[in-house]
Amino acid sequence: MKKRKERIDRGIKVRSEDIFALSSWREMLYFAAPRVIPVAVFILLPLVLGDYWQRVYLSVAVFALLAISWDILSQSGMISLGQALFFGMGAYCSGVLNHYFGISPFLTIPIAAVVGGAICTVMLLPVLRLRGVYFSMVTLIIPLMLERVIEATKIFGGTEGLSGLDVLPSKWLEMYILVAAMIAALFGFRRMMTSDYGLVLTGIKDNDRSVMNAGINIYWFKIQALFIASAVGAFAGAMMTHVYRFVGMPVFALDYSILPIAAVMVGGPGSFAGAVLGAFILVPLSEALRALGGLRIVFYGVFLVVFVVGMPEGIFHFIARKYSQFERWAEVDK
């Protein structure tokens, strides 16, 4: 007798999400738990971690932001291989403003997010007219080339970089700015992508012709998505500049491009939650594997391949499915 796996939405999911007739504590808990618990964990985690792991948590938040930025682009049909471009641009913007003009980090960080994002958007503007792999190719090579340009021209400190930059007044402040940014980005962009605006962005990815045929200028929407994503990445870079009190060529390094993609692939694309989950898995893992040195990047590479081929939906969607649906084996008729 042939059987097939049948997946059915749990009654509680339908009641709590589609009808909003939350009639019992159980239902309200079912609806709220996946939202409230992670937020509580994000907020409370720094309080229980030691100094070393607090630093790790900072990079988790930074990579989560970069991964979210990547996910915004990929949901709008742009596959970036160069998150380091956004990260590095933000880092250099805030570093330069602070080093040469002595502007306070409270100003340099927001300025760097906007200006850095704008510079990246303008650089990538011409590629938006093309479909397919061009965006990936160009985003991959621009940060690597910028690294060489800085090395060769010795601008902004050259290979030495700019060090001794100002820090934020307290480590708790920098911690909670990043955590707040991560939470805001996670829920804010989730909301954005399910709104009608987000529908247009995903529409461009699936069928740009149809979107154009609605009298919508797809380039303008792509530019907006690109700016949002690069500003998020630039913000992460600017924060890190002031945490490490240093900016230099390494901000354009491949690590900042690869780890976010790996995080999204492991966590699951298209939900932002997957991006954050992936960062929470991969960044501590890579700390734990620090002893392995260069082998870590080999692992990232392997992770990318394994998840892309074997589990393209990622861990988050797997968990989400288990949470909201039950499975049973049903007989196939005839």
Partner: peptide
């Protein structure tokens, strides 16, 4: 690897990039 993700640009790009990365960094290691 690629045959399984054929036609999906995103997956092709990431898979080949991952393979390249693994090979290169393995030599470095």
């Amino acid at each position: 690897i690629l045959m399984r993700v054929r036609g999906q640009v995103l997956s092709e790009v990431i898979a080949t990039f991952g393979i390249g990365l693994a090979i290169l960094e393995f030599f470095r290691y």
